[in-house]
Design a protein around this nucleic acid. Structure first.
Lengths: 232, 232
DNA sequence: CAGATCAATATTGTCTGTCTATATTGTATG
DNA sequence: CATACAATATAGACAGACAATATTGATCTG
C-alpha cells in the first residue's frame, strides 16, 4: 500500500522527488518515528534528504492536504496532534465507514472473496486461541482489507483505509490487547456470518459492534466534555 | 463555506497567495467555469493571476491532493473527469455518509437544532407545493447542512460536506428536477420524523431512501458494467 | 525587579533565472 | 506506410535572493 494517498497498488514507483519525499515523511509520521507536534523545518529536511526546498515544500503541502501535518503561514508545518475529541470523532467515522463496507460486502462479495475471508477468519481463530496478538493483528488488517475490497466500491474502500491509517498510530492508546483476542474473534465471527447469509443490516450492526460503537456513550461523552485541544 | 478544504468558517481571509489561488481555482472548477479535462498550464496561470510559478505549483499540488485535479509527472495537471463508475461510487459513498449523519443526528441533535430543522423543513414544504426548484435547492443545502451539524461529529460532517461538494457539479447530470419536489419533500419528511422520534435506524434508512440507494441495483449495475474511464 | 516596548533574528513565502528530464510532436528514413 | 530519431515545449528541480512575518531577546520604564 502506498504511503500518502493510500492508493492500493500503483504500477511503477513514483517519479518526482516530491512524491518520494512525501511518502517517506508520511511513513515516518505514521510509524511514529517523527511523532505529533514535531516541527518540520524546510531547509533542514532539504539538507537531510539532499534536495532543494522546492520539492520539500511541495511534499509538505500535500501532507497538509491529507491532514497528516498542519501548516500555518510563516509558522511552519508541524505534525498534527489530534485532540481527544477529534480522535473520538475519527474513530466513530471509521466505524461508520467500516460498517458501510460490511453492509455492501454482504450484498456484493464474490465467491472467491468470501472464500478468502473465511480462510483468514479460520487462521485468526487459531491465533486467538493460541494467544498470539502479533500475528493476529497482522491478519486483522487482511481481514478488514478483504471486506473493504469486497464492498465493490473502491472509493469507499479507499476512504475507509485512509481513515484507519490516520488513526492507526493512536489505536494502541485506546485499546487494551491482552485477552481481547477471543472477544475480537467472536465479533469477527458475527460479521462473517452476516456476510455469508447476505444480510447487509446484520453485517453493519455486527461491524459497528466490533468497533465498539453501538449505542455506547463514549463518543457522546467525549463530545459533550472534551472541548479544547488541537485540530485533527 | 471555504472553497478548497471545505472548512466551515474561517476567521480571517487566507493569507498566502497559494491559498488564495487554490481557493479561486477550486471555486472555478466546482462552479464548472473550468470544466473537466481542461489542462492547467502553470506559466499561464502564473501570468493570469500575476504571480510566479511557485505559488501556482503549490496550489495545484494541494488541489491534486483533494482529488479535484490530477497531476502526472511532466504531463501537467488536468481537471479530473470522473468515470461513470467513480461517480456512482462517490454517490454511494455520499449516501452512506449522509445516512450516518442522520442516524447520529437522531441521537444527538440539540433542541435548537431540531427546531431549526423543522423550520427549514416547513419552508421547503411551501416551496415544493409552489413548485420553486430554485429556492428549494438552496434550502435543500441548508436542510442537509443542519443534519450534518446535528450529528455531533465535525469530522464526519466535514467529510460528508466535502464529498457532496465534489460530486456537486455532476449531480445535475443524474437527477431530473421537475416534478420531483413533492417526492423529495416526502422523503425529507420521513427523515425528519425519524429524527424527531430519536430513531437512528429509521433515520438512516430514510436518508438512504432519499438518496435513492436502498437496495437499488443502479450501483451494482454500474459496478459490473462500466469499467473504463478516467480516475475520480 | 516585573512588565512592556521595540529591535534583532529566524523562518517561511515568493520571485527570478536557470538547468535538467521527459512527454509530445514532427520529420526523415527504411 | 511504419518506425526511429531529432526538435520542441513544458514540468521538475535547483540556486540565490529578497520580502513578510512570527518569534525571541534586549532594553527601557515604572
Amino acid at each position: 500500500m502506498e504511503a500518502t494517498s493510500g492508493k492500493i497498488a500503483l504500477p511503477g514507483p513514483p517519479r518526482t522527488r516530491a512524491d518520494r519525499l512525501r511518502e517517506d515523511l508520511a511513513e515516518e509520521i505514521l510509524s511514529g518515528r517523527i511523532g505529533p507536534g514535531v516541527r518540520l523545518d524546510e531547509q533542514g529536511l532539504a539538507d537531510r534528504y539532499g534536495v532543494s526546498r522546492t520539492p520539500v515544500r511541495e511534499a509538505l503541502r500535500q501532507l497538509a492536504a491529507t491532514g497528516l501535518v498542519e501548516a500555518r503561514p510563516h509558522k511552519g508545518v508541524i505534525v498534527t496532534t489530534p485532540s481527544q475529541k477529534a480522535l473520538a470523532e475519527s474513530f466513530e467515522l471509521m466505524a461508520e465507514l467500516e460498517a458501510a463496507c460490511a453492509a455492501l460486502a454482504a450484498r456484493r462479495m464474490t465467491a472467491a472473496q468470501r472464500r478468502g475471508l473465511l480462510r483468514i477468519h479460520g487462521r485468526m481463530r487459531s491465533l486467538s486461541e493460541a494467544g498470539d496478538p502479533e500475528d493476529y493483528a497482522a491478519l486483522n488488517l487482511d481481514f478488514h482489507d478483504t471486506i473493504w475490497q469486497g464492498c465493490g466500491n473502491a472509493t469507499l474502500a479507499q476512504m475507509t483505509a485512509d481513515v484507519r491509517r490516520r488513526v492507526g498510530p493512536f489505536r494502541r492508546l485506546q485499546f487494551r490487547l491482552s485477552g481481547r483476542l477471543q472477544r475480537s474473534w467472536e465479533e469477527h465471527d458475527a460479521v462473517v456470518r452476516a456476510i455469508e447469509q447476505g444480510d447487509p443490516a446484520a453485517a453493519r450492526l455486527a461491524m459497528q459492534g466490533h468497533l465498539g460503537l453501538v449505542g455506547d456513550a463514549s463518543a457522546d461523552l467525549v463530545r459533550s466534555k472534551a472541548q479544547g485541544g488541537m485540530v485533527g
